[in-house]
Design a protein around this nucleic acid. Sequence first.
DNA 1: ATTTGTGCAAATCGTTTGCATCTGA
DNA 2: TCAGATGCAAACGATTTGCACAAAT
Lengths: 140, 140
Amino acid sequence: MHPSTGQDIVKLLRGAGLRPTRQRVALGVLLFGSGDRHVTAELLHEEAQARKVPVSLATIYNTLHQFTEVGLLREVAVEGAKAYFDTNTSNHYHFFCEHSGKLMDIDTDQIRIEGLPEAPDGMTIARVDVLVRLVNTSKR
Amino acid sequence: MHPSTGQDIVKLLRGAGLRPTRQRVALGVLLFGSGDRHVTAELLHEEAQARKVPVSLATIYNTLHQFTEVGLLREVAVEGAKAYFDTNTSNHYHFFCEHSGKLMDIDTDQIRIEGLPEAPDGMTIARVDVLVRLVNTSKR
DNA sequence: ATTTGTGCAAATCGTTTGCATCTGA
DNA sequence: TCAGATGCAAACGATTTGCACAAAT
């Protein structure tokens, strides 16, 4: 179930303790209006412009991080400076296509990691990231 | 067994098809002279300076990438803009301490991933990265 | 002699910040 | 009203590039 109306998003934001401002609601609709998404700040910015919702890049960054802090998004580290944000916040893993730069979810049900060592003393495992890197078969 | 002398490094570089220049040999000694290491460009630069082997940062980057291309190093994407290079090029996974920014190898023997889905059509799995993120137990 | 590598400084990329202005409750 | 949000432009950190000079075969 994906909230698609502005009203749904307003509720979502209020529930998360965030003021439903014009920009946040607009970005919320883009992010949560359809199925799971993987966006970069730049991509979201372009989408907003395209939909005639001018939002500054600074606000895009602020919003992505705020959404992440309240658990509406999950940040995925892939490489380089580019940060990806995933609307699927459940525990799951990713395919990453090096060629296109696209991220895809992997169903967690199927995958299982065994023999994971204990965390060193005084440390706790916060999260396990699994990234399956893909290349075009033809090449290489 | 880790090559520690300049001569060993010269052989290593020649074998990899790289000219054994002053700088590359010096960096090779730092990287491969002792056990497995995880370095950033900045760290390696500082080490070189400390050992009175002035190498420009640009050359550090060139060298790290060249070494990676010929398989002497492996790049590990963790987060942000900072790139880590690992002298252990075998297939293995990592602990990452968010607090200290330190990377540690995980023995691959123990760990096993099951139920990994097929790569999508036209794509091949190039590599599977597993990063176990650690936080200090006290905190959180 | 020819090819390849190096160093510097400037340029680039994604991201963050300072601060004046605006907006939602 | 007024805390909090936004936009702009400048600042940033890690990395890269262009090009003159130096070193390796």
